[in-house]
Amino acid sequence: MTKISNQEQLSRLESEAIYIMREVAAEIENPVMLYSIGKDSSVMLHLAKKAFYPEPIPFPLLHIDTTWKFREMIEFRDRIAREEGIELIVYTNEEGLRLGLDPVRDGAVYTDVMKTEALRQALDRYGFRAAFGGGRRDEEKSRAKERVFSFRNEHHTWDPRAQRPELWDLYNTRLGPGESLRVFPLSNWTERDIWAYIVREKIEVVPLYFAKERPVVQRNGNLIMVDDDRMEILPGERIERKKVRFRTLGCYPLTGGIESNAADAEAVYAETCAAVRSERTSRIIDGDAGMYSMEKRKREGYF
């Protein structure tokens, strides 16, 4: 697995993503771009700027804030929104916040309420008819089966058995009342394409993706960063300083780091090409409902 993503391939993927974004902007009223602050979101935002230039991006960004994200992610988010002059909507499920749900203790309930439910609430409140997501088909088996334009009923539910046929590049964007679309412009990108593109285009990403000495504890085979004092240190756990980076970013107590020396995008790209474990092994939440966890969450209205 030493293949270098070639430039022609990256340009083809770029054109395809831009085409998809322009279709949505031309055909659907009130779209929004889900901004998770991760590397895929950074790439999506970069592509959106290119797609609509010389006009500004014609839709806002939406971040579902669980309040348990890494502090560096929130700083990065606010700075990017300010510098780019983009409208950023931050939404938190206040009811979940009141319940004081904890990512570690409340596990699946926390994910349902603070992520899935929060996303549904935000889309309903603002009446967004289409939401761009950074999902890629190489991430996970149920995503590999999902259309680029993924139709959701009025309850935001995905029915994998009744997906609209998607032919050539002719996307059907027609919606009935209450129905919406999730649109994935990066469907055909792989993790390596993402890093190759970040290197080529010099796209800024959250520094957590680069190796640095950070305080971590070992937990169930994962290295969990102690990002603030809300994190409970369990008996037998010890805070160590290790040089780690993160392959994916989410709620810090649920995100495992990997030991690495890759301190910039080129180095991360090189490590990605040599990786022996898939990306999602560092995401703890996917494993908790058995092998079809992602499909289940998609059916419930998550991305």
Partner: peptide
């Protein structure tokens, strides 16, 4: 349904 898979060898993607 259709499943999409991405892979590369030394020679081609």
């Amino acid at each position: 349904d259709v499943a999409y898979r991405y892979f590369a060898t030394e020679k081609r993607s």
